[in-house]
């Protein structure tokens, strides 16, 4: 019993210490005096690796999810004779929920794991230590550009996901199943509000992007610098990010759309 309590205590202390280190990492990399001339090329490079290279998976997933939504929506709504509302259903589910959540999950798997593995390997091959010894703060040189790139790319990827998804939905509903395109688009236009739906979706994706990339850089920087340590850190990035996204999604949805 005592041993169990000891282990529990040690684990809790480790977790609390890790949260502390994650906070420290965030403050050191973001509050550190910015050096825009040095930062800009690094940021553009990371935007390419983290954002642009994630485009393919985001576009393909968005297209198929939109098509599935169109198909499912149609088969349900047609029973009630309200298949004209498919556009509204596709757009609302994408903009409010699926685009931010699915993009963030894909983003954690595609970009988050890559960032963790890259930083972990830099640590294992003493590159981070070397930056320090050259007199360059790795927080500013390595961590900060990745953090910003993740934070900037995630909402953009999420918007692209939603747009492609809506287009996929229209492909199925309008072009294949033959719903009148006027009512498909008009219903959508009438029911999706910019301030309520689009803005809240963007806020969600900003929060998710921030959490995912923070977890990813922290796990990379904090990993045990061995091949096993890096593999564990990469796994932790994907698992923690996914859980954080789903948990936060419920909280944010309750705050944004819950009527209480």
């Amino acid at each position: 019993m005592i041993q169990f309590l000891q282990k529990l205590g040690a684990k809790t202390l480790n977790r609390v210490a890790a949260v502390g280190r994650a906070g420290q990492l965030l403050s050191q990399s973001l509050i550190a005096k910015p050096a825009p001339m040095m930062m800009l090329p690094l940021l553009i490079r990371q935007l390419y690796f983290i954002g642009v290279l994630s485009l393919v998976i985001i576009i393909v997933s968005g297209l198929f999810i939109g098509m599935v939504l169109g198909l499912q929506g149609y088969t349900i709504l047609v029973d009630y004779g309200s298949e004209q509302a498919v556009g509204q259903m596709v757009a609302l589910s994408l903009v409010r929920e699926l685009a931010p959540v699915v993009t963030a999950l894909l983003f954690a798997g595609r970009a988050g794991s890559a960032v963790t593995a890259e930083i972990g390997l830099m640590k294992a091959t003493e590159q981070l230590a070397c930056y320090e010894m050259i007199g360059v703060d790795p927080m500013r040189r390595i961590i900060a550009p990745r953090l910003w790139a993740g934070f900037i790319s995630m909402p953009l990827l999420s918007m692209i996901f939603a747009i492609v998804g809506i287009w996929g939905g229209s492909l199925v509903a309008v072009d294949w199943l033959g719903i009148f395109s006027g009512s498909f688009w008009a219903n959508m236009q009438a029911s999706v509000s910019f301030s309520e739906d689009v803005l809240n979706g963007v806020i969600k994706s900003l929060v998710f992007g921030f959490v995912v990339i923070w977890i990813a850089v922290f796990q990379g920087n904090d990993c045990v610098p061995t091949s096993e340590g890096i593999s564990q850190a990469t796994t932790r990035t994907v698992v923690y990010s996914s859980l954080a996204i789903l948990g936060l999604d419920f909280l944010l949805t309750a705050m944004m759309f819950g009527d209480f």
């Binding site: 091959t125 590159q127 070397c130 320090e132 010894m133 703060d137």
Partner: peptide
């Protein structure tokens, strides 16, 4: 931290693994 980085600019270190930026 800032002074430490200034001091390090006056130091050179050859790491065991080389630690070249890949």
């Amino acid at each position: 931290r800032r002074r430490l980085f200034e001091l390090r600019a006056k130091m050179g270190m050859l790491f065991q693994s080389g630690a070249l930026f890949t």
